[in-house]
Structure formats: structure tokens, C-alpha cells
Amino acid sequence: MSAKDEKKRRLNQLSNESGLITALAFDQRGALKKMIARHQIQPVALEQMTNLKTLVAEELTGDVSAILLDPEYGLPAAKARSAASGLLLAYEKTGYDNIRERLPVCLSDWSVRRLKEAGASAVKFLLYYDVDGNNQINQQKQAYIERIGAECSAEELPFFLEILSYDEKFSDKTSPQFAKLKPHKVNKAIAVFSDQRFNVDVLKVEVPVNMDFVEGFASEEIVYSRKEAAQAFQNQELAASVPYIYLSAGVAVGRFQETLFFAYESGAKFSGVLCGRASWGEVVPIYVKEGQESARRWLQEQGRQNISSLNAVLQQTAVPWSDKYR
């Protein structure tokens, strides 16, 4: 079997019967600590992180094609997941988003081979990228991604690259100022890392607009007309020459589903999602304040409903990754 065929086989392990990637993301580490810390006085314990990830994997992976976890706190959850759910493991160190240049950093005691040995069917790496930023910094980032891509190819594991756009001048990504820049930032980065030199198999991307500023969706100021927003999704489709899936970016369930319909209607041919907090985020305060069994009940009821409704949307809007896989 060729390396490409082996990657395809593993991508099929991460997909549903329709060839869509309907995956749950729970590789949060620093962000999860902050979420838990908001609801308690004592320091966040390692066991809290591990137990919550395991609980989510037990209750929600029966309804998703795969789960994304981290090897620092998520390996017990990986073992607890449904047998039908594939496994992605994160390779980046958490917290480097707080550094000004946001240079990427791999987990120091892991390699793609070790992630594979831990059961991963694919590797995910998160990259912060400002297409208008310092060229020397961007060249360092590109070289880093080339190395990870080569490492994944050597181990015949699919490489999922998550790109988060930013601007050195605007720290508030929720501002209308950044919203005006976002289509360019997101789509240009997608075009850069679609190049074959990076050996990226699937891009995990942001939607190219902030839907809170789109005509008909906006709660405050309007930055984009519906036509302009649709054009941004069309440009995203043109920029991506590899399969791409959307991240939920912590938005509410309903808004994320509305966004997927809008993307589809605009001509975006995305192949699924890696959805995190939109599926499980509301369980955190329940877990902290009411305990594990109350959290389990929420996951069995509302958590599964969140995933079921999202899966129904994806069946209507997404296309198989094989349509674009080269």
C-alpha cells in the first residue's frame, strides 16, 4: 500500500459513511483550565481535566466520526471513546498564542511516531498566522509546517493543519476593525498552506467572516452585506485546493449551524467540522458545581442533541473530503 493510500485509509477511519468528517474537538488545555477556574476557588486539578475529557468521550463519541484530543490530558479519554470513533491527537504545545510572534512549538516529549503509537489516525497542529505580518517570522512558520508535514508523510499519517488568523495591530478579534480584515487574513492563509510543499491533508479553518457583523445576522454594527459575506465564502472555496473543515470557535450551537447553512448557500464545499465548545462547553459549570453525574446527564441529553442537530446540518451542507483530496 502506498503512503497516499495509507493516508486515505486513515482518513476513512475519521469519517462517517458519507465521507464527511463529523468530529468532536476536545484538545483544549489552557483554555479548559480557564473555563474550569471561572467556577471554583481552588486551583484546577489535573484529574478534573482528565476526568471531564473522559466523560465527554464516553458520552458523545458514539455520535461523531472522530474525536480530537491532546496527549497531555486526553489519553484516558482516547481509550474511553466509542470503538467507531477515530482519533486525532494534537501536536502543538498549548499557550504559545500569548507570545508576540506566536512562533509554533511542538510538544517537546512527543513526535508523530509517538502519537501514532498512542493510537492516532491523524495528527493536528495549530498555527497562528498573520499573512500581513513580518516576513521573516512567516518564513519560520512555513518552514516549521514543512517539517511537520514531512514527519507525517514519513509515518503515513494524515496531517490536519488548524490555522488561526490574527493581526499584530488589532488584539481584539471580536472588533469590527478586525472583522473588516478577516476575509483577507483567513483566505490568504488558506491559499498559502494549500501548497503541496506542506503536505497538509485537511485544513481546519475559521469561517472567513465574523457572522456577528453580517447583514441579517448582526446584533450591532454591519460590516458586510450578505453579498459581501457570500463572496468571502466563495473566495475561501477558491483558495482551498485541499479538503477543509470548519472549527466552531466557541460560538453558540445555533449560530454555528446558521453559519454552515450560509456557507453552503454561498458555495463553500467544506467537508465537515471539528466542533468543540459549541457541543460540550455548557457542561463545564455543571461538572464543577454539581458533579460528574449531573454532567453525565447533561451530556446524554443536551450534549447528544447538540451533536445530532449538527450532524443533520452537515448531511445537508458538507461534501466528502475525497472530492478534493489529491
Rank of each mutant, 00 (worst) to 15 (best):
A154K: 13
Y128F: 13
A78Q: 11
G74Y: 12
A218F: 09
Y166N: 03
L126W: 09
E47I: 01
R100P: 07
N51S: 12
E265V: 01
E215G: 11
D172C: 06
A118K: 15
E101Y: 07
Q234C: 01
P43C: 00
L68E: 05
A230D: 12
F233D: 04
R296Y: 11
E168S: 12
K53M: 11
M49Y: 08
R304Y: 02
N51F: 03
L88K: 01
E151A: 11
S308E: 11
A31V: 15
M49G: 02
Q234E: 10
Q231E: 14
C275L: 00
S266N: 09
L314A: 00
K182G: 07
I148M: 05
R38K: 15
K182R: 15
G86Y: 05
E59S: 00
Y246R: 05
W280S: 09
Y246I: 02
V207M: 14
A25Q: 12
Q136F: 06
A295K: 09
K93C: 02
F233M: 07
T61V: 07
S309A: 13
V44S: 07
Y287L: 15
Q13F: 00
F198A: 06
L60G: 06
D130L: 00
E101W: 03
S175E: 05
L164W: 01
S121T: 00
V192R: 05
A252N: 15
G216S: 13
A66D: 01
E58T: 10
F178M: 03
L52V: 13
I307T: 04
S85A: 13
S309P: 03
Y166A: 04
L52T: 06
N235C: 08
P176G: 09
A312K: 00
Q13M: 00
V283Q: 13
S153D: 12
K269F: 00
L126I: 10
E215A: 13
G272P: 01
E146V: 04
N235H: 11
E162G: 11
M49I: 14
R113G: 06
G119P: 13
P183N: 09
A278S: 15
I286A: 14
L238F: 12
E155Q: 15
D323W: 11
A90I: 11
Q13V: 00
Q236K: 09
F159W: 06
S248Y: 04
Q48W: 04
K269T: 01
E151D: 15
V223R: 04
E162S: 13
A154V: 05
S225T: 15
S2W: 14
F178L: 04
R81A: 06
G303E: 07
S175A: 12
D5G: 08
F198Q: 03
K227A: 15
A78K: 10
G86W: 03
L24I: 06
A249V: 11
E290K: 15
Q234D: 01
N16Y: 01
S85R: 00
K182F: 01
P285K: 14
Q136W: 07
F217G: 03
L161I: 08
P76C: 12
D195H: 14
A312C: 08
P320I: 04
S165K: 05
L127F: 08
A90D: 13
V192A: 04
